Computed example of a mutant assay.
Amino acid sequence: MTNLLPLLADYPLQNLNTFGIAARARQFLRIGHLEQLQAIYHDSQLKKLPRLILGGGSNLVLSDQVDALVVQMCLKGRQIIDEDDYFVHVEAAAGENWHEFVLWTLSQGVGGLENLSLIPGTVGAAPIQNIGAYGLEIQEVFDSLTAFDFATGNIVRIDKAACRFAYRDSIFKQAYKDRMVILSVRFALPKQWQARLNYADVAQYLNQQQIATPTAKEISNAVIAIRQAKLPDPVQIGNAGSFFKNPIVSAAQRHSLLDAHPRLVSYLQESGDYKLAAGWLIDQCGWKGRQLGQAGVYEKQALVLVNHGGATGAEVRALAVAVQTDVQAKFGVLLEAEPVFV
């Protein structure tokens, strides 16, 4: 059992979360194969501990002391499973780096994930958050996943409907939180590929490059360039990417806000509601470039909170609350944080 579960006590997590918070785990374990999860399930002491499942650490704000068994998913592997008249089915293990997986699919001549290039994190974390960017969400190309169920000790396959995907949400952030550990994810990528150019920044970049009919790889390159220009590199300054969800409001609420704020940035949704640009709301409240302690709002993009060096989880939380308070006071809209506070 010792060889199967090489537990590390009081383990430093600073290099395992993109915010760079100097947290420590009560117990830490890297998972390289399924038998380790089964061993945890059958260990009466470990099973009782609170668990934190860690992927790339890109969607977390940690407290200084994480009183839990922190399990880092390191399962590797990716393959084309099969194809039919309409789709190529591609599968990757939970521990695969997301961006590297996207580039791999493109190298195999399979398009469909290119708009999600350069999103930090792992494949296993992608469906939990229903990651999305530049006109595409995971749920649109998702087929199914396998997971280890800590309630029963079984491996289960969960289809798209059962995931209950919503905007930056899924059942894994709700009923299955801390219960299901994702092992692998399967995607159905279209054989009749079509470029998604409905996001203005992507279309504008391609136009500047004089690319009229882009390939999937060229769209990927565009998305990478746009993200690198807008978002800070976590290696250089700690951050968790976009910190707040873009709030959804009714048409009536948008109309009322437009009366008071004619330059309001909003996007019509299929439901008839409107998505507001959270970054614009934060910027209007004067937060861009400001700091509370060592936590701050990124000077180039108000939607991103950053660690200027030595920020604690408490400082990041305090900054987030201050931003939420000001936005709600000015616009009557409550911003919801994307990262999970641990």
Rank of each mutant, 00 (worst) to 15 (best):
L197A: 02
L231H: 00
Y176C: 14
Q209G: 04
Q192K: 11
S220Y: 03
A203F: 12
N198P: 06
Q174R: 09
Q194P: 05
V202H: 08
A229G: 13
R186V: 10
A216N: 05
E218Y: 05
K191W: 10
Q208M: 15
N221Q: 09
S184R: 13
A222N: 08
A200D: 12
A216G: 14
L189R: 11
R227K: 05
R227D: 00
I224L: 05
A203L: 06
Y205Q: 09
Q209S: 04
P214R: 07
A225M: 01
R179H: 06
N221P: 09
S184G: 13
S220C: 15
Q208A: 14
A175I: 14
A203G: 10
I219Q: 09
K191L: 11
Y205M: 05
A225H: 00
A222S: 08
I211R: 02
K177P: 13
Y205R: 09
P190Q: 04
Q210E: 08
I224N: 03
Q192N: 13
S220D: 00
L183S: 08
A222W: 00
Q192W: 04
Q208H: 11
A200G: 10
D178P: 09
Q194M: 08
A212R: 05
Y205G: 01
A216Q: 02
I211L: 06
A195S: 03
I182E: 08
K177N: 05
